[in-house]
Amino acid sequence: MEKTLRPFSNGKKIKLDQIIGDSDTVERLIDMGFHPGIEIEVINKMVNGGPYILRIQSGFIALREEEVACLKVVGL
């Protein structure tokens, strides 16, 4: 089942399955190093629908909710 990162709590590590959404956003997410199969760690979520802080490899990246929504993961 496809899921977004929303239900995952801080500290969780999830494998990215697909990147789907607005083409510019998807392109830029790939530029930043996102690709299917990569492990994403959820570091923090700001309150009030603020950005998520994620880690891929050795990089911390802040993404808005709608940007995070492009990242589909496989639910367990």
Binding site: D24, T25, I53, F60, I61, A62
Partner: peptide, 12 residues
């Protein structure tokens, strides 16, 4: 306008 993105790398 066209949607904007934030996507910020947080340096060490």
């Amino acid at each position: 306008g066209k949607n904007s993105f934030f996507m910020m790398e947080l340096p060490l």
